[in-house]
Simulated assay, not measured.
Amino acid sequence: MPPTPATDPNTLVEALQWRYATKAFDAARTIPAALWSSLEQSLVLSPSSYGLQPWKFLVIEDPALRSELRPFSWNQAQITDASHLVVFLAKRTIDGADLDRLIEATSTIREQPIEQLAFYRSMMQKDLLDGPRSALIDQWSTNQLYIALGTFMTAAALLGIDTCPIEGFSPPDYDRLLGLDSSPYRSAVVCVAGYRSADDKYASLAKIRYTAAELIEHR
């Protein structure tokens, strides 16, 4: 059965209108543990192509480490002032072991014989490992991360939590500081979450969006 709707359409639109890329966070406010746990679940439950989940999410809790990352983030204050910092990691490559991992998990969770999943595995193999997409697999993995980023930011808005996605950072320096140089994963995008500062002048600015008539076409 479908879940009971968590909100009504007007509340959803209001939350999206309220959301903005928060420039100044209240460093004294921390997201409550229960709310943060829900946001972590929004990452876990994010959709991905084939359900392959070619990602990891680093939640940076150590204040000293966040201070080290800040100079490599265009010195943006959100890195140290926001309640939480998440580094979204993309898988550098996709190989047969990744496909097998998903097939085995599917077999276990859905109590389905692996033999019945052979066609699905073959389809992934032909597309991601043997097909033209294999030459662009690094970009493909990054694209998947942005689905998770959008899910995370929307979930946060519905919970009244501010976020700011950050591409203004140095991935090589992040990878070095986070010990990712020899990891299967690399830093691709960053997002901070917390509560806006009363001094953030951007909070009261009107949102600039083109009209639905300009952006949405029905055929």
Rank of each mutant, 00 (worst) to 15 (best):
Gln17Asn: 15
Ser182Leu: 10
Glu217Cys: 08
Ala157Pro: 00
Glu14Trp: 02
Leu102Gln: 11
Leu89Cys: 14
Lys23Asn: 13
Pro5Ser: 01
Ser183Cys: 09
Gln41Glu: 14
Pro132Gly: 02
Leu45Arg: 14
Leu102Cys: 05
Val86Ala: 12
Ser49Arg: 09
Glu68Asp: 13
Ala77Met: 07
Ile31Gly: 06
Cys191Ser: 08
Arg196Cys: 10
Lys91Gln: 12
Val87Met: 03
Thr108Met: 09
Ala156Cys: 09
Tyr202Lys: 13
Ile103Cys: 02
Pro172Lys: 04
Pro71Lys: 01
Tyr210Ala: 13
Arg110Asp: 10
Ser141Leu: 04
Lys91Val: 01
Ala212Cys: 12
Pro9Asp: 01
Phe169Asn: 02
Thr93Pro: 03
Arg29Ala: 10
Asp62Ala: 10
Arg196Ser: 09
Tyr20Phe: 13
Leu45Met: 12
Gly160Phe: 05
Gln116Trp: 09
Val44His: 15
Leu65Met: 14
Leu117His: 05
Ala118Lys: 13
Arg133Ala: 09
Arg121Gln: 15
Leu58Asn: 04
Ala212Tyr: 13
Asn10Val: 10
Leu52Met: 12
Phe169Tyr: 13
Ile60Gly: 06
Pro54Lys: 07
Ile147Lys: 00
Gly51Pro: 04
Ser67Asp: 13
Ala27Lys: 15
Ser67Tyr: 03
Pro165Ile: 05
Lys91Leu: 12
Thr108Pro: 00
Ile137Thr: 08
Gly150Asp: 05
Ile31Leu: 07
Leu12Ile: 11
Val44Arg: 15
Arg70Pro: 01
Ala193Asp: 00
Glu167Pro: 01
Thr80Tyr: 03
Ala157Ile: 00
Gln76Ile: 04
Ser46Ala: 15
Thr11Glu: 15
Glu214Ile: 03
Glu115Gly: 10
Gln144His: 07
Leu39Asp: 06
Leu178Cys: 07
Asn143Lys: 15
Pro171Gly: 04
Glu68Gly: 01
Thr163Asn: 04
Thr93Cys: 07
Leu99Met: 05
Leu205Gly: 04
Pro63Cys: 14
Tyr195Phe: 14
Thr30Gly: 05
Ser122Ala: 12
Tyr195Trp: 04
Tyr50Glu: 02
Pro2Met: 11
Gly150Arg: 03
Thr151Cys: 11
Asp98His: 12
Glu214Cys: 04
Leu58Val: 08
Ser67Lys: 14
Tyr202Arg: 14
Arg133Phe: 11
Ile79Glu: 03
Asp62Met: 08
Thr142Tyr: 09
Thr11Leu: 09
Asp175Gly: 02
Ala105Met: 10
Ile103Asp: 01
Arg186Gln: 15
Ile109Ala: 12
Arg101Lys: 11
Ser141Arg: 02
Pro165Trp: 09
Met124Ile: 05
Asp181Glu: 15
Ala28Tyr: 05
Ala118Leu: 06
Ala34Thr: 13
Gly160Val: 07
Thr4Phe: 08
Ile147Leu: 11
Phe25Thr: 03
Thr211Arg: 10
Trp140Phe: 11
Arg66Val: 09
Leu145Phe: 02
Gln78Glu: 06
Leu39Tyr: 10
Glu61Gly: 06
Thr154Gln: 09
Asp130Pro: 01
Thr163Gln: 07
Asp200Tyr: 01
Ala6Asn: 10
Asp26His: 06
Phe72Val: 11
Leu117Lys: 01
Thr163Trp: 02
